[in-house]
Design a binder for these strands. Structure first.
Lengths: 280, 280
DNA sequence: AGCTGCCATAATGATTTCTTATGGCAAGAG
DNA sequence: CTCTTGCCATAAGAAATCATTATGGCAGCT
């Protein structure tokens, strides 16, 4: 069998062409000049063609050398990629439970990016009711839960505070008495916070619409049925309230992440948790 | 610097995975079993991960081994391609003069394929009048000419005989008297042959259309203006004559190739001539 | 003419790689 | 249970390879 190319020789060749000198390539690669000279002669023997014009001014590639260069560069690139990526992709499965409000945000995109980096892994985002989420968590179908702290199925490993904002439907009078409110159904997002806020400010209100789905809530607000409390990332431009004093100030929401104890040390879960924390 | 991958080791790895045994891979590659065992261990050291499950039943790739495999195969493929193609591409320019009838055939495709194999070369196909072709040949703009033997600008290096067929327009009565004929203009293809055939068989005819362009001739035949003599490769299905005795049998055409004497030894011209001869 | 910086070759010592010899393991047959 | 077969791993030694130092030749510059 004819001799194989050698990656170390290709690297010497590419470097010599790049710097225009065998001597300087040798220095660059940590060898002596005769060693590089011999390596390049060896490569030329393997290829069966002169690859370099040599002169006291240095070296330049021959026509065959120019033809070999793209191959050499691609082989070097593939080789590096093979070395850095083999055996380092994460695998396994991670279930992430989170509020639909959060699921609609950049968090899902961040998890999608993570999934692309680790094609051997599967990420699953679930938006469930409080009870169903706890059941899934206890059964290890969900490994991480991102929710308001009181609703977490386990102790939070860390928490963050995030603001809420009013979303106002088209044509809705924000000074209306009573105020038409669009709410998430029981066990869904911020219902308690919103109601407590309205009670504390003694602002009369009525339930104009209820849904356990963010899509439903957004549709109702769009339709002008009332106002709703949302995370800023879900606020559509037409829903921005232009009278900041007409509606009571909403308190921040305190989000936390619960992690199933049996996932300690799992590199995939570690990576997902890190990604969630970074994106919040 | 971290050690490089080695193509010879990748080859051993790929072979071992393919045959499922280090011993049999060793035999396949012309080495002893301990040599292959050591090579694979060396590769695993370089990559930093176990690549093979080993057992008395043979070997199978680990997850990291499966990840490395596509890289290894691509590097081996690129390496082989680099070895076989570097310094072997033809360069230069070749002008080929040929009848438009021929230019529209598989010959042009063959030349296009040749051009793809040798991106450093340029091929130019010209369909010129007899006088213009001779002028281009004498000026070395055209290096090869493929034409009827009497029309060649120089002595033919070889000749072949090829049949002609009648192309019949839609709705054209092949028994019409006189027969409407679509002809190439003076100095173009087969005009003399066709006219001699019609005279010899005493079949009355008239010129229904004339063009110095194959596209023009084909358009006229398609339009039902008459019949034309074409090479079989240019016959469209709707033009096939279904009454083989109604029209006089056309004689074969004798094609030859003339080569400019100053191109002797030019590898590109050699390759083009070989391709033309093979495709006719 | 002398100096500088380039590349090539020779000789030598160190390292690598292949071989043969041998050992351990698992599975199958008797 | 014993023996055989076929697999992989390791040790030791010989051969080949590879890097170094030493040195020579060439072209260009001062």
């Amino acid at each position: 069998m004819a001799r194989d190319l050698e990656i170390v020789l290709l690297r010497s060749f590419v470097t010599a062409v790049q710097v225009g000198s065998i001597s300087r390539a040798a220095t660059t690669l940590g060898h002596t000049q005769p060693a590089l000279s011999q390596q390049l002669r060896k490569l030329e023997n393997v290829v069966g063609r002169p690859l370099l014009h040599r002169s006291p001014a240095g070296v330049s590639p021959t026509r065959a050398g120019e033809e070999l260069l793209p191959y050499a560069e691609r082989i070097l690139s593939l080789s590096l990629q093979a070395l850095t990526e083999t055996g380092r992709a994460l695998t396994g499965h991670c279930g992430v439970g989170m509020l639909e409000d959060l699921a609609a945000s950049r968090l899902s995109q961040a998890l999608a990016d993570l999934a692309r980096l680790h094609p051997g892994a599967t990420l699953e985002v679930l938006s469930l009711s409080r009870a169903a989420m706890r059941e899934a968590y206890d059964a290890s179908r969900v490994h991480l839960v991102l929710d308001e702290v009181p609703d977490l199925p386990g102790p939070p490993r860390w928490t963050v505070r995030r603001p809420l904002v009013w979303a106002v439907g088209h044509g809705v009078e924000v000074t209306a008495d009573p105020l038409p409110v669009v709410l998430f159904s029981n066990t869904c997002a911020w219902r308690t916070s919103v109601l407590e806020t309205l009670e504390r400010t003694e602002r009369p209100w009525r339930v104009a619409f209820e849904s356990n789905s963010l899509v439903g809530v957004l549709a109702a607000v769009r339709a002008g049925l009332g106002v709703a409390a949302l995370m800023p990332g879900n606020l559509e431009p037409a829903m921005v309230c232009h009278d900041p004093n007409a509606l009571p100030a909403l308190p921040d929401v305190e989000l936390g992440l619960a992690r199933h104890p049996r996932t300690e040390g799992d590199p995939l879960i570690n990576a997902v948790e890190t990604a969630l924390r970074r994106m919040l």
